[in-house]
Structures are given as C-alpha cells and as structure tokens.
Design a protein around this nucleic acid. Structure first.
Lengths: 160, 160
DNA sequence: AAATTAGTTCGGAACAAAACGAACTAATGT
DNA sequence: ACATTAGTTCGTTTTGTTCCGAACTAATTT
C-alpha cells in the first residue's frame, strides 16, 4: 500500500481519458496505458498497478493481457524475482502511427467509394471542390505518416 | 413503401460502419449520415429515411436531431409542403477537418504534458527520438489541416 | 370538428461492455 | 509438506447504450 502522488493520479486520469477517447479500449485499459506512459522504463509490477489503480486483480489481469496482445505494452523479468515488470512498449509510438496509416488508407478507399457511387447515381451538379481538397488532404496525411515511419525505422537501425 | 436498390443499401451499410468507427455516434446515426452522403442534394424526407433504414420514427427523430445539432446535417423546406428535407450539410467536410484540428491540438497538448511530467519525475535516460519524431509529425499534421481549411474558406468566398 | 400528417417525448426492454469476487493454478519459499 | 506469491479463469453484477412503442403535440386537410 505505497503512497502515490496526487499529481500522478490526476495526470493518469486525464491522459487516460484522452487515450480512451482516441482508441477504442476500455477505461481501465486506457488508465493502465497512461500510467505506464508516465512511469520510468523500470515499469511497474502487477501488484503496483493494482495498488495504483484501485481496481481488482481480475480486471487488471484481463486489461493488461489485452494491452500486451496489442503490443502497446511489454514486460520483462529479473532473474531470481518471480514478478513481471510491465511498461509501455518502446515502439508504442511506431505502432500508433502504423494504425494511423491503416485508418487513413481506409478513409481514402471509402472516399473513393462515395465518389464513385455519387458519380454513377446523381448528376453531380458542379465538381465538389471540398471533396477534392479533402482527398488532397488525405494524400498529404498519408505521406507525412509514411515519412515519419521511415524515419523511425532508420532510427531503430542506427540505435541498435 | 418505395423500393430502394440493394446496391445503395449495401453501400449505406458499409459506409455507415466506417463512420460509426471513426466518430463516436450511434450505429443508426452513422447509417443516416451515410445515407445522406450517398443521396443527391435534394435530400430525403423524414418518412423516406424511416422507410429506407427500417428503423422506428422515434429512433430516427432522436438520431436526426443529434446530427442536426452536430451540424453534420441540415434541412430545408419547400413552400406549401409540410415536410422537411434532410441532407448532409454542405460544409460537412469542413466541419470534419475542424474537429480533426481540435483533436490534433489536444494531442499536441497531451504530448507536452507527458514530456513535462516525465522530465520532472524520472531522469530521462536518452533523448527519446521517437517522441521527437512524433511531435514533428503532429506539427506537420496541424499544418496540412490548417492549409486545407484555408483553401476551403477561400473557395467558399469565391463560389458564393 | 374529425382525421391526417409530421414529427417529438418519455419510459422501458434488450443487449453489450466493464469491472468484480471467489475459487483456482503453478511456481517458489519456509 | 505447507504457506505464500503471482497471476488467471469464470460466473455474476453493475453500468451504459441503443432502440423501440405508445402516447402525445401542433399544424393542416377534409
């Protein structure tokens, strides 16, 4: 029953809410992820997480496993210590961007589908300029994501 | 009890799912929005929407009002006709981008909050290069959104 | 005035998601 | 061998969401 600073609790709460909104994971999972992001790369043990979040062991267990499976978290062990130590995975941001890219690609595809449908079914009065600018925007977005991903990859190769 | 094409029903279904995933609105609201996106700018009446979606009047009413309130839809009337005709609002894509910008700004702010917290509380071993690249990415994203919004605004002024 | 049209409101049924507790396993420590 | 630790499993409870139907309003038509 360690004491945790009110500051950290508040930060975990607000960042957890943000994550919950952004991704579609359960509130508790989002809070665990936030907690890990705000903790050193020593990470935390299962019990420390239970303790900090005040949630049940079972809830922590399932949400933690969810996060591990999503690869947004990882764990390591110390020889002669039974516990596992959990932390935000080092390429968490890389994975986020990859997911992002997927979403943008989907968006591009859906936008195409919409255009084709509308062209086929209604006389499109005047070429929709917003639609054009939006498509342009999606392509630009795709580019900056891909560039960033490449930079990250290069960085990985250099630093290991 | 008009007949609607199977093709349109399928398209509404798949695009509806996509909207449902992207925004956080109810399934039925997403389908209504999809339907409007795939319909001409004549829009559809309340009853036609009920008819197409096979949902109850009450569900349509509340979801339609939600969409109107969000300004992703609008309606117009015809003199001497009691009905309202609903359609996707003309600056739907503009609004989407505005919302997007808000999210990116929030993201930038949260990223800052995280960095400050971590700098304060743990010796950050080595300057986190992914973090840096991610921040750079967010700024680029902000730029392209703002540019697109400006182009859209200019377009509005020219075309009216 | 009665009926129809165009919707709205509200209470609740049906379902889905999130978290919990108790009982369990499997490994380590005493 | 017995107790403790580190977590998992599973059935239940709690909470929240989505949609519906029935009853209603307010305007228009007959």
């Amino acid at each position: 029953m360690k004491e945790y600073s009110v500051e950290k609790k508040k930060a975990v709460e607000s960042i957890g809410l943000h994550i919950e909104k952004r991704t579609q994971i359960a509130p508790l999972a989002a809070r665990i992820q936030a907690l890990m992001i705000l903790s050193s790369d020593k990470g935390m043990s299962f019990d420390e997480i239970v303790d900090f979040t005040q949630a049940s062991k079972s809830s922590i267990s399932s949400n933690l496993n969810l996060l591990l499976q999503m690869k947004s978290m990882e764990y390591y062990t110390i020889p002669g210590d039974r516990k596992r130590y959990f932390r935000s995975s080092k390429d968490y941001l890389f994975l986020r961007l990859e997911k992002y890219l997927e979403m943008v690609n989907e968006e591009i595809q859906v936008t195409k589908q919409i255009n084709e449908f509308n062209k086929k079914h209604h006389e499109v009065s005047e070429e929709d300029s917003f639609g054009f600018l939006f498509k342009e925007f999606l392509e630009q977005q795709k580019n900056i994501i891909q560039n960033t991903l490449e930079k990250m990859e290069r960085n990985l190769r250099t630093n290991n």
